[in-house]
């Protein structure tokens, strides 16, 4: 009986220290057990914002292998824990509902997207690279050695990691592709 009565705020108003019912006496059980999702996260990972070149550091909170929060990292001498609207929207960027998670394929002259599994896609792309490379190979031009292909071009974004850029330049150059460009120029 006592506990049931205690659960009724009116009773707590009459017997407690908050008669007007505007504070301590009207708290619900859920309010008393409130905790932020950052406190219940499994781990925190330090990362860097993918948007502009200021390079603000971010803290990524993960719970059950899902990103639950991304906010500024106070340790950074550049951003001191702060973020801009885009950086603050990093969680939406990573968990966006319209983000693609499967390979999409459009056949030549096709009218809609089709599915394709990743390994087949990789294999098809490798074949096309070799086929185009063979068809457009130039040993020399104006009697000067060039050993290259002008048939394969690449336009890489500037949100690529240094390591990704490095493998791209290394592979493209070894394949003889020179028309390799990126957002740094446009």
């Amino acid at each position: 009986m006592k506990t049931w009565l205690d659960a009724w705020p009116v009773f707590r108003q009459l017997t407690g220290s908050d008669p007007s019912g505007r504070g301590e006496s009207v708290r619900s059980k859920r309010t008393d057990t409130l905790t932020p999702r950052t406190a219940t996260a499994d781990r925190v990972v330090q990362s860097v914002c993918p948007y502009c070149a200021v390079g603000c550091s971010q803290r990524v909170f993960v719970k059950d292998e899902q990103v639950v929060q991304i906010e500024g990292d106070p340790d950074s001498p550049i951003s001191r824990g702060r973020l801009c609207p885009k950086g603050a929207a990093s969680k939406s960027l990573v968990t966006s509902a319209t983000r693609q998670t499967t390979v999409r394929y459009r056949r030549p002259h096709g009218t809609e997207w089709e599915d394709l599994d990743l390994d087949t896609a990789m294999d098809m792309i490798a074949d096309r690279v070799l086929k185009t490379r063979r068809e457009t190979w130039q040993d020399e031009q104006d009697s000067k050695p060039v050993n290259r292909t002008m048939g394969i071009a690449s336009l890489g974004g500037a949100t690529l990691d240094n390591e990704e850029n490095y493998l791209m330049k290394k592979l493209y150059t070894a394949m003889g592709a020179v028309q390799v460009e990126n957002q740094a120029r446009i």
Partner: peptide, 26 residues
């Protein structure tokens, strides 16, 4: 649409929190 002969492969990419790597800032 039918006139365009380009074969298009769309491969979904990993976000910045789903891979290790370094950025060089300004």
């Amino acid at each position: 649409t039918e006139g365009i002969g380009t074969e298009v492969f769309f491969l979904p990419a990993a976000a910045h929190v789903e891979k290790d790597g370094s950025f060089t800032n300004t």
